[in-house]
Design a protein around this nucleic acid. Sequence first.
DNA 1: CTCCCACTGACACGACTGTTTCAGTAATGC
DNA 2: GCATTACTGAAACAGTCGTGTCAGTGGGAG
Lengths: 172, 172
Amino acid sequence: MASARETELLEAAYRYVLTHGLADVSLRPLAAAIGSSTRVLLYLFGSKDGLVKALLARARADELALLADIGTGPDVVARLWEWLSAPAHRPLLTLWLEAYARSLVEPNGPWAGFARATVEDWLEVLSSAQSEEVRDTPAGLAARTRELALLRGALLDLLATGDEKRVSAALE
Amino acid sequence: MASARETELLEAAYRYVLTHGLADVSLRPLAAAIGSSTRVLLYLFGSKDGLVKALLARARADELALLADIGTGPDVVARLWEWLSAPAHRPLLTLWLEAYARSLVEPNGPWAGFARATVEDWLEVLSSAQSEEVRDTPAGLAARTRELALLRGALLDLLATGDEKRVSAALE
DNA sequence: CTCCCACTGACACGACTGTTTCAGTAATGC
DNA sequence: GCATTACTGAAACAGTCGTGTCAGTGGGAG
């Protein structure tokens, strides 16, 4: 489906939005930065919304790859936090938060459903890390919802303050 | 400092951004919606950034009023969650999240410091609700950081899914 | 060689952006 | 009455936005 040139430019654009944000990106500066032109971006992705959608999907692919990598096993929460708090992942997570907020404000457009999708993705991972006799109980649902809240609230704090010591200590 | 007309228009603009979001607001549609003109908004607030800054401060005033209202006492977390999960407050909280994310992506401009400021505001409230012998210990800091993370993570979940039953159950 | 197709460059279109200029009006203080 | 102050209207500014048009490239397949 996607040509070689398309994925190549998508990767370059992805690197660009990781540092510039997705909210007020515009075609001309983006094209100039990645050595392309608006004409080509429009040709390959159909429209700006198409490009944004592709970028969002690209970001989500990173996220899903992580979740698959973490797998199930014990200490999922600790290992997830280790990944979330890694300084190298901060641009990606800032972008993630931006897309999350945007999808709430503007339920239409390319952002649609992004926030809800990630909640489900993560809940499922946390679910598969639970013991079988707990997984399908209300208590199990509450437990993984709480774990998810803890991780994401801590992430919010970390992204704002950068105070990794305090936030990591709060997660035991 | 602020004239009567200025606060009147600020309130109207605040009501407008609560439903339309702050990210891609522009002067002409906003002015038309609140029965004013770009000329007047610019006259009163100096620039668009000035207006955005005033709106952000207005939103923060709502937040601080809440925190003062909650006070200290026991069960702060429960009472905070009660407020956070109230359907009536959802537009405000969506706006809050939007400003939070934006201030991380774009550390300059009128958004600057918004995220960090709210972290500190809330931590202080949670701090003053702790017993005196715990407040100044590392364990106390970790405890309130964890409480804050739990509340905000739960809020993220709630805003995305609207599943108040599940999220509230997760907070005991 | 020829045809086709993925890709690209230059440019213009209309709409919209924040801001400025110049002009008023209405009320207030002296 | 007069001047000052607070506010408002209309129009234009230069710039950027996403997108469309028309014209090419280059290379691989038949």
